[in-house]
Amino acid sequence: MTNRSVPTTGDLVAGALKGRRLDVGGFVLVVGLLLALLISMIVLVTLIADMIQQGLPVLAERGWAFVSTPLSPDAHDAGIVQGIMGSLGLMLFVVVIAFPVGVASAIYLEEYAPDTRLTRFIVANVRNLAGVPSIVYGLLGLAIFVKLLGGITGGRTLISGGLTLAILVLPIMIITASEALRAVPMAIREAAFGVGATRWEVIRYQVLPVATPAILTGTVLTIARAFGESAPLLLSGAVLSLFFASPSGATLWDFVAHEKYTALPIIVFNWARQPQKEFVALTAAAIVVLLAILLLVNATAIVLRDRFERRT
């Protein structure tokens, strides 16, 4: 006598093999996951649309003058040229200091360094430095470049800010350059060693040419990051007032070593703190310019890398 409510093994297998046609749970999961991704995208679109909507009136009314006039306490005259010049100056320091030092460190760590305690310590240290909050680098800049070395850097000048930003991005430079070097196939090095090249010759003529596109893409992305960075500059001396005079006729050296400076993200921050309504639109307009520069730079780097990845 069989109890019909207890299915046989055969029934179970047949049931499992047939399954439900529609996997409702799976469908819900996919929709949920896609939703998470789409929400992030919607936030991005909303942010950009909101900034354009708020900032466009200013940009339309002022046109090029907004980008080419200096700061002013009067919202109707205020422009961002000092911020753009300052940011470009800061990037010069980043490129001139962080790029060569970063690539050299990466070459040492990837190509030369024996597996010693010192090496492992440097690697761990670089990773930790990359995780230090940017405002802490600002404290470093304030204590060392503005105060301790104030006699050389001139205190609150582009030199102090530029050095601070260069040190901030150095660990990121090292990590990206290291990854680029690691991606170069070992066979290339072995072949070069096999025909009698010294280590430096192998690096200079075989490894670096292969790694260059990836290193450059990483560098561009790093510079874009530095361009939008403002917390360290708050501490290392960027000017926070609503306006300051940049004397005409100042030489480039004066501009770098003696004059007050500011940067585009600092202007955004400063205007964002102003309660008057005109400054809200002004802030949005400055953000539109900042985002336009950054998106352009980032997109270039991403397209470059995409191309490079598809080729290899």
């Binding site: 991704l37 802030t283 995409d306």
Partner: peptide, 26 residues
């Protein structure tokens, strides 16, 4: 994936001052 992944990276490239202003005004 090829479209969405770079877009996430664009989101990663938005400076924090901009997000701060967005938080305050939106």
């Amino acid at each position: 994936r090829r479209v969405l992944k770079p877009l996430l990276e664009v989101l990663a490239g938005i400076p924090s001052v901009v997000l701060g202003f967005f938080a305050l005004t939106w």
